[in-house]
Amino acid sequence: MSSEPILKTENVRKDFGSIVAVDGVSVEFYDDEIVGIIGPNGAGKTTFTNLISGALPLTDGTIIFDGEDISGLQKYKRVRRGLVRSFQIPQIYDEMTVFENMQASVLSRKQENNRLFTPTHRDSASVSETERLLELFNLEAHADDHTEHLPHGVRKVLDVAMSFALEPEIMILDEPTSGVGSREKNAVMETITEAAVEQQIGLIFIEHDMELIRDYSDRIVALHEGRVLADDDVAAVMNSEEVNQFILEGGV
């Protein structure tokens, strides 16, 4: 494991009025591990990831990324530094083809959004990189399809692939297999984790499916009522009495 955490939260807190959704969470993440986040509904998992990505402002606490305080940094600037997320409900560009969707990510990573006059299909650097990425995620057959007609599983993979195209240091996945048929779940997770290991991207994933958590995590963070219940390797967390009491038996 790397010596320095790539991402660190210190006493992160989020209030919605009188409700405390995230209540002082301090966790460290490294760029060479896969961390599963578990917890019953309302435990603050999604809120916690929204705080990290900047979708919600912090009430209190600090977020350190790559040694720097990013607590007040704008969303797009966090992305540019290498802190990237994917979405539970695929967020892709509907009236565009799969190819364009992917190329949009590639061009944005290179921060070439302000380039005028060169038509995108003639920009050989981003075109060949887009083709390579589509192949890596087995999407090349759909390259010219408009995304609105794609099956849900393909949209889900595209959503994750578009985040990978940003070459992040660490990536947050909000239920990467939700809505994916049970037989394809493992294939989707295989594709994601292989790509992450290959490109040395740290993964944080929220998941309800305990099988997937057990199979793919290096470490588990269990949240309960906005607090960290357990933060340890898979076996330790799965065998913890508290985790069993609050989460596993709760029928998540």
Partner: peptide
């Protein structure tokens, strides 16, 4: 040209 460039794609 402008609307087919990366800038145009960004607007889309």
């Amino acid at each position: 040209f402008v609307l087919r460039s990366p800038f145009g794609l960004t607007l889309k």
